[in-house]
Amino acid sequence: MVPTAKRELIHAQDQWSIAQLRTALESALSGSGPALGFGEISSANVSSDVAVVVTTSGSTGKAKEIHLSAAAVMASAKAANRYLNAEIGNSWSLLLPLTHIAGINVLVRAIELKSEVKDFRNTNEYAKVDFTAIVPTQLHRALTSESKLLKHLQDATAVLVGGAPLSSDDRNAALARGINIVTTYGMSETSGGCIYNGTPLNGVDVKIIENIIYLRGPMLAEVALEDGWFRTSDMGQLENGKLVISGRSDDQIISGGEKISLSTIERELNENFNSIFIAFAKPDQEWGERLCIATTLELPQDTISHFLKNKFGGHATPKEIHKVDEIPVVGIGKPDRAKIIERLVK
């Protein structure tokens, strides 16, 4: 039965200290205070069992609210701490924005451990902590240019890396430099990461139906379910019991009658050229949709075209390649395809 009673929702303020945020979050989770919203929240009231509200842009770039119960958020935190063998008093550092579930989760995990959170979001001076969480862009910067951040990550017992695909080059480089990275997969609808290093956290179930990933467990938000399962927009497979993500189901285009996964194109380009690419489509009278690529690299079109043709076949040869000054991002560092389309598709 869906709760009909309403609960007040207050918005987390940018000027709040970590201590103030933690107090408000603890009250929201315990039920002794109002629910807490992060980001651009329009709701003033929520269902009585909702403790946390976040916004997510998803794959379309259009923000939507995700309503999470205290039980879901705490189940996620407990499962994460259990996987990491975290103990009461172990500290976390905050390197992610609190407008994203990954940043909020750092606070919740620390609450569960009765431990300290050290806020390093706006500084390049760090202190040693037991655990932290970052996105692949931050890891890449640590490996290539930010030596103090690199030392911070090396000193941590484990570093969660999620929010976007991690290239194999950066993964291998991180391990070689002594960073104990744990790759995470999840989304706001699952209270953040629920698959660590390809393995479901305690209480989480995963299944694959026609290449689509379905998830089930106590960490789910108030979302539509199919026989108790949450249907993601991601494609993948189980290999030796581990989940391997292969792309998204909602980013396929059809060009000349052939299906092309934009995320798969991006992943292969990113890993081969060690940079960030965005693949997108433009309407085309001949092809239906034509594949286009945006990149900050100065690369001959033939270089990209030959690589994709050899990898996927002639239908994956891009019809346009756009050199841009920067790749726009959304959320905690995901390349913003919607913004590129807005700029380049006339």
Rank of each mutant, 00 (worst) to 15 (best):
A5E: 15
L9D: 12
H11R: 15
D14A: 15
Q15M: 08
W16G: 09
I18F: 05
A19M: 05
Q20W: 02
Q20S: 12
R22M: 11
R22H: 04
A24Y: 04
A28F: 09
G31E: 05
A35R: 08
A35I: 11
L36S: 11
E40S: 13
I41P: 10
S47K: 11
S48L: 02
D49H: 13
V54S: 00
V54N: 04
T56L: 07
S57G: 13
I66S: 03
I66M: 01
M74H: 07
A75C: 06
A79M: 07
R82W: 09
Y83R: 15
A86P: 02
W92M: 13
W92V: 07
P97Q: 11
G103H: 08
L113N: 00
V117I: 14
K118G: 04
T123H: 08
T123A: 03
Y126V: 07
D130M: 10
A133D: 01
Q138T: 04
H140A: 12
E146N: 14
L149E: 02
L153D: 06
V159C: 05
V161H: 03
V161F: 01
L166S: 04
S167R: 12
D169H: 13
D169K: 12
A173I: 01
A174W: 05
A174M: 00
R177L: 11
G178D: 03
M187K: 02
E189P: 08
T190W: 02
C194T: 11
C194I: 15
I208E: 05
I209T: 05
I209A: 02
I212P: 00
R216A: 11
P218Q: 04
M219L: 10
L220W: 09
T232A: 00
T232P: 03
M235D: 00
G241K: 04
K242Q: 14
S246W: 01
R248C: 04
R248K: 04
S249R: 10
D250K: 03
D250G: 01
I254N: 14
E258I: 15
S263V: 03
T264Q: 15
E266P: 10
R290T: 13
A294R: 12
T296V: 15
T303I: 09
I304D: 00
L308S: 00
K311V: 00
F312N: 01
P318Q: 07
K319I: 02
E320A: 11
E320R: 14
E326M: 10
E326A: 13
P328I: 08
I332N: 10
D336G: 02
I340K: 09
V345S: 08
K346S: 14
K346A: 14
